[in-house]
């Protein structure tokens, strides 16, 4: 390989990495909001809704994301919904990882001692106030590392979009690898790009975690 080819391959991978970052951020945002809603429903919601949320969590987590993506992207036209690919990926990926995030949030919220609720109520705090000021900050401590796990898995799962006509980092690497029939160096380069993306995300997580540590 000449150096010009290496440069152009690196640029090509960098373009793929940008797509990966964009899709990942979208998916993580949807997963966080929807996951919190699901966790709240399961813990404090009206019981039938809570059971529904639990059932959703079981099914969404149990089915491979590839199947969900292919199933939804190629079936939506039948329902008259022709959404652009990135939107389908962000929504379906987000709702899928919401099921995982919900488990993390649920575990963390349930671990906050009930006495904290009692104490807050005794101080005359409203439920919402109590939740946001007292409970949530404590739950965050337990939820952050496993939430980071989910986020990193989400980043790496964006590679599945190539099955439905999407293009991102792994697809770019595979294209370079198949062109040269040398897949291993291409994949190692892909891994290096992933490392940069995921390491940045986990450093942000670590930083937040340090701020919340017990002193």
């Amino acid at each position: 390989m000449t150096s010009a080819m290496l440069t152009s391959s690196a640029l090509y991978l960098a373009q793929g990495a940008l797509v990966t970052i964009g899709l990942s951020l979208g998916i993580i945002a949807v997963a966080t909001v929807a996951g919190m809603l699901l966790a709240l429903l399961r813990l404090y919601g009206w019981r039938p809704l809570g059971l529904l949320a639990a059932a959703y969590g079981l099914v969404a987590r149990g089915v491979p994301l590839l199947v969900l993506l292919i199933g939804s992207y190629f079936s939506l036209p039948y329902l008259g919904l022709d959404m652009p690919l990135w939107l389908v990926v962000v929504l379906i990926g987000g709702l899928y990882f919401a099921a995982y995030a919900a488990e993390v949030f649920r575990a963390a919220l349930a671990a906050v001692p009930r006495t904290q609720w009692d104490a807050g109520r005794a101080l005359g705090m409203r439920r919402f106030q109590l939740f946001t000021i007292v409970i949530l900050p404590q739950a965050r401590r337990l939820s952050l590392p496993p939430f980071l796990n989910v986020a990193l898995v989400a980043v790496k799962n964006t590679s599945l979009v190539s099955a439905i006509g999407g293009w991102e980092l792994v697809a770019a690497g595979r294209e370079i690898g198949e062109r040269t029939m040398e897949i291993l160096p291409a994949y190692l380069a892909v891994a290096a790009f992933y490392f940069v993306i995921c390491f940045s995300i986990s450093q942000i997580g670590r930083h937040v975690e340090k701020k919340m540590r017990y002193v």
């Binding site: 590839l66 292919i70 992207y73 190629f74 079936s75 036209p77 039948y78 190539s162 099955a163 439905i164 006509g165 293009w167 697809a171």
Partner: peptide, 17 residues
């Protein structure tokens, strides 16, 4: 050109995409 992997090539035409 709609680029898909082997998994997606048949659904791509069956769905009308």
């Amino acid at each position: 050109l709609m680029t898909t992997t082997v998994d997606g090539r048949f659904p791509a035409v069956l769905s009308g995409k």
